[in-house]
Design a protein around this nucleic acid. Structure first.
Length: 514
RNA sequence: GGCGGCAUGGCCAAGUGGUAAGGCAGAGGAUUGCAAAUCCUUUACCCCCAGUUCGAAUCUGGGUGCCGCCUCCA
């Protein structure tokens, strides 16, 4: 088995072979930091995070570089609107980006260059292009001459001659007059009055959008890299321009593999700022959607296809994640009872045939152009017996020998889920009226099972377990009196607060936080 | 107009020549005072037409519908 990826450059799946054995260099187009990230960004960076995790799992040493575009018209506009500076807007949104990515369990890039800190490399690259005759300057602007570059548009499949007519009229006429060809694009823009600018051989100004990526790739990873990532909306013109700039300067192929993710749609239309149909990552998380639910939602579709964002689909992902989470968490919650730990529960080097086959199906799915939907199917299959075990333990059934032998399955599930960046989440803390608990003390500990506390151990974790227990006692009394209306009322009341009561034999009632 | 992509059960979504994964929702059963959870069982002539083939959701041709890019965009 070997990893095969769809390469936009050839529009075909091809076996992935890195330039240097055992090493993979990846450049991922980052965000323009003029605003918060939305679900479209989340999808893109989740799937590329999975690509990266899978390559690491396969044993590659991966170097992952992702840029911040912190010079841009929109950032300037935002700064002007709020009376601050380009730098202030950028810093704020970079901070938000880092927090959002961390919340989604996306591994931070190895290097995160910024346009404002890469100006030397940018100016040097523009200078080279000019010297080679691939670029020309007009009144402080510098443009790339697309006609001078053999094969311009090869990524998007655009033909300059055919495209010329369509492009005419789409560009501001004043700018068009200065260009030799309508598709020529700015490498350097002369400063306008009142805007921040940087010195250059062509006069004060700032870099065009595309050039920063070419410069950063070369500076951080070299002339030729293994994989270049981005959203499908970047194919043209951004990536075509990037290829033209880099290859005109170095004479080498910029990237061997170009991977592009599909868009997130809302009501069949692309989520975008201009349509106003976007949901920011933090708004979604603040609404109670868990990060892992979002990952599951994204990974249940193939990365190249459009993904429709609906409340229903998200709800389905949330329910699905709850089941998967139960299986992932069982070994940790009942560690004392089962004697499992992540390092000792079963030998992953000598898996029984059934689990070995499962692992191979997972790999085969991932090898096939990151078929995460199929890989997830395998995870759910692995999880089923573990969910059943979790349920029995929740009801205080004593685990038998067959249950204990599920340790290897649990560890395998943990490992494969980890490749997708799915990790079991601790139950969220209940918030009860009058609760004065201190959530800060609750992290990380899962008490072992006992007769006097909830099996999930939440009663000891900073919420008002006594209040809940008192209600449970009242309900128990009501049930004994066959006053089910009162009993159900208490259960409904707690449910509204996110507490689920579970009756089990012996007139014992457990509760867990949803 | 040019380039590219997609159409699979109520919803989401895998599946690229051999009689349709998985998730959600639904139905029946076990369990339950009722729930919740769990377990078992169960729900598809794969947009249309024609063709290739012993055999097609999967290949070819033609339709129809939808989406993305061609301006900033993950």
């Amino acid at each position: 088995m070997s990893l095969r990826l769809t390469n936009t450059l050839t529009r075909a799946k091809a076996e992935f072979v890195p330039l240097q054995a055992g090493k993979v260099s990846i450049y991922c187009c980052g965000v323009t930091v003029y605003d918060l990230c939305h679900l479209g960004h989340a999808r893109s960076y989740i799937v590329w995070d999975v690509l990266r995790r899978y390559l690491i799992w396969l044993g590659y040493a991966v170097t992952f570089v992702q840029n911040y575009t912190d010079i841009d018209d929109k950032i300037l506009a935002r700064a002007a609107a709020e009376g601050s500076s380009m730098q202030a807007v950028s810093e704020r949104n970079i901070e938000a980006f880092v927090a959002d990515m961390a919340a989604l369990n996306i591994l931070p890039a190895d290097k995160m260059p910024r346009a404002t800190r890469s100006l030397d490399a940018i100016r040097a690259l523009i200078g080279e292009l000019e010297a080679r005759g691939a670029a020309y300057s007009v009144d402080g602007d510098v443009y790339f001459a697309v006609l001078k570059h053999q094969g311009y548009g090869k990524l998007s499949g655009r033909d300059l001659a055919e495209q010329q007519d369509n492009a005419a009229g789409r560009v501001a006429s004043s700018e068009e007059a200065r260009k030799q060809h309508p598709f020529d694009f700015a490498l350097w823009k002369a400063a306008k009055a009142g805007e921040p600018s940087f010195p250059s051989p062509w006069g004060p100004g700032r870099p065009g959008w595309h050039i920063e990526c070419s410069a950063m790739v070369r500076e951080e990873l070299g002339a030729s890299i293994d994989i270049h990532l981005g959203g499908a909306d970047l194919i043209f013109p951004h990536h075509d321009n990037e290829i033209a700039q880099s290859e005109a300067a170095t004479g080498q192929q910029l990237a061997r593999f170009w991977l592009h993710n599909g868009m997130v749609n809302v009501g069949g239309q692309k989520m975008s700022k201009s349509l106003g149909n976007f949901t920011t990552i933090r708004a979604l998380l603040a609404s109670g959607v868990s990060p892992m639910t979002l990952r599951l939602f994204v990974l249940q579709a193939h990365y190249r296809k459009p993904l429709d964002f609906t409340a229903e689909a998200l709800e389905a992902a949330a329910t699905g994640w709850r089941g998967l989470n139960a299986a992932l968490a069982v070994g940790r919650i009942y560690q004392g009872l089962l004697g499992w730990s992540e390092s000792t529960a079963g030998d992953l080097a000598a898996l029984p045939d059934e689990l070995q086959a499962s692992k191979e199906r997972f790999s085969a799915a991932m090898d096939d152009d990151l078929n995460t939907a199929a890989a997830l199917g395998e995870l759910f299959e692995l999880a089923r017996p573990l969910r059943a075990l979790a349920n029995r333990l929740q009801r205080h059934d004593i685990p038998g020998l067959a249950d204990l032998s599920l340790g290897g399955r649990w560890r395998l599930l943990l490992e494969l889920a980890g490749v997708l960046g799915l990790e079991s989440e601790q139950p969220r803390l209940p918030t009860l009226p009058g609760s004065s608990g201190n959530p800060a003390t609750s992290a990380g500990s899962f008490p072992s099972l006992s007769e006097t506390e909830s099996p999930l151990g939440i009663s000891a974790q900073g919420c008002d377990g006594e209040a809940i227990q008192a209600l449970i006692e009242r309900r128990k009394a009501a049930k004994a009196a066959r006053d089910f209306a009162t009993a159900d009322g208490i259960r409904d009341q707690l449910r509204a607060q996110g507490i689920e009561l579970i009756d089990r034999p012996g007139a014992i009632t457990d509760w867990i936080q949803r």
